[in-house]
């Protein structure tokens, strides 16, 4: 067969992770913003803006994990033990915030207050943990052959903490942008303010992370044409559209905020994420586990990849179709009237 199956699957997994980051990104971001809401009614509205879709959003994370296991089992088996503690922290955070959607509606006074905190705390913990995972991933993992050979805290560095802060700011930006789109009145005004603040923070942190990556990780820097402090323009220019896309996203964000548009800021935030993500991908291709395993070395047997490609080709249109339909059913502004009474 002439299809380059590992390459196709690398693309599919990358697209899955990107979709996950953007979709769950906005609902995790709303969780982080929870404590800043003015009133319980606003918090109800914030939750209503994501309650029907969060489970579908999180399913992209399960597909990312399951897909990695199925398509690149060696990378899955190497990365997860290497990033064990942040992964567990993420899972615990996701568990607390996930049940909070329904539990918060059932709790009485103290229960409700507890699940409000759990929703915010769980979202923050999960986001921060994902940032640490990302930072640890960029730093690369130690391996002996294809087996993890590092220590339990390899991922913990100032660099990964910086990445985690950047990711948190980005998720808050997505969340605030989503809220601007979905809400009205005072809450919409708050969301606008949050979007502006998060936009500035995201821009600064994205810049800081990019610079830190160039200084700390020469392999990535070389990809961008930065070697020993000098820039090789012939290598940089072909990649220049990626940072420009980010600048365009920030521009759209600012423009949308100025024009009091409801939807443009979210679109701008999405472009910023896309730029950051492509930037990362450009720094790593072809590694799935930096800098030990390429996607070809980690790939599953061809017959497994082929079987799944057939399945995915059949099922993906249906999944995308009904996912879009669900978003369409729940289109429009949400209110705080989170009840029948």
């Amino acid at each position: 067969m002439s299809l380059d199956l590992p390459l196709i699957w690398a693309g599919i997994i990358a697209a899955t992770v990107l979709l996950y980051v953007m979709l769950d990104g906005f609902d995790l971001g709303i969780g982080i913003l929870f404590p800043f809401a003015r009133s319980p009614a606003d918090r109800d509205a914030m939750m209503n803006a994501i309650a029907p879709v969060w489970d579908g959003n999180e399913t992209w994370l399960v597909l990312g994990g399951g897909g990695l296991l199925a398509a690149f089992p060696l990378a899955y088996a190497l990365l997860l033990p290497a990033l064990y503690l942040p992964i567990i922290l993420m899972l615990l955070g996701l568990a607390l915030r996930g049940v909070a959607f329904e539990f918060r509606l059932n709790g009485r006074r103290s229960g409700k207050r507890f699940w409000t905190m759990a929703f915010a705390g769980g979202s923050l913990a999960a986001t921060f943990a994902q940032g640490l995972v990302l930072g640890g991933f960029i730093q690369g993992v130690k391996a002996d052959g294809v087996v993890f050979a590092g220590g339990p805290f390899d991922w913990l560095t100032p660099y990964s903490a910086l990445v985690a802060c950047g990711l948190a700011a980005g998720y808050v930006l997505l969340g605030a942008g989503w809220l601007m789109w979905k809400t009205e009145d005072a809450l919409h005004g708050d969301a606008r303010r949050w979007t502006a603040i998060a936009g500035v923070l995201t821009a600064l942190l994205l810049l800081a992370v990019s610079l830190a990556t160039l200084f700390l990780h020469p392999r990535v820097a070389a990809r961008w044409g930065v070697v020993d402090g000098t820039v090789d323009w012939s290598r940089f220019l072909p990649k220049a559209p990626i940072p420009l896309l980010g600048v365009a996203g920030l521009g759209l964000l600012t423009f949308g905020l100025r024009r009091a548009s409801h939807a443009l800021p979210f679109v701008g935030a999405v472009l910023v994420f896309l730029s950051g993500y492509l930037g990362l991908a450009a720094g790593f291709m072809p590694y799935v586990a930096p800098y030990v395993l390429t996607f070809r070395q980690a790939a599953a047997a061809d017959n497994a990849l082929a079987l799944m490609l057939g399945g995915a080709a059949l099922l993906a249109p249906a999944i995308v179709g009904y996912t879009v339909w669900v978003y369409w059913v729940f289109r429009g502004k949400v209110g705080a009237d989170a009840g029948y009474h």
Binding site: K333, V334, G335, D337, A338, G339
Partner: peptide
């Protein structure tokens, strides 16, 4: 309007 209304909200 367009709220998503959970049945569990009806408490």
């Amino acid at each position: 309007r367009a709220p998503g209304v959970s049945f569990n909200a009806a408490l």
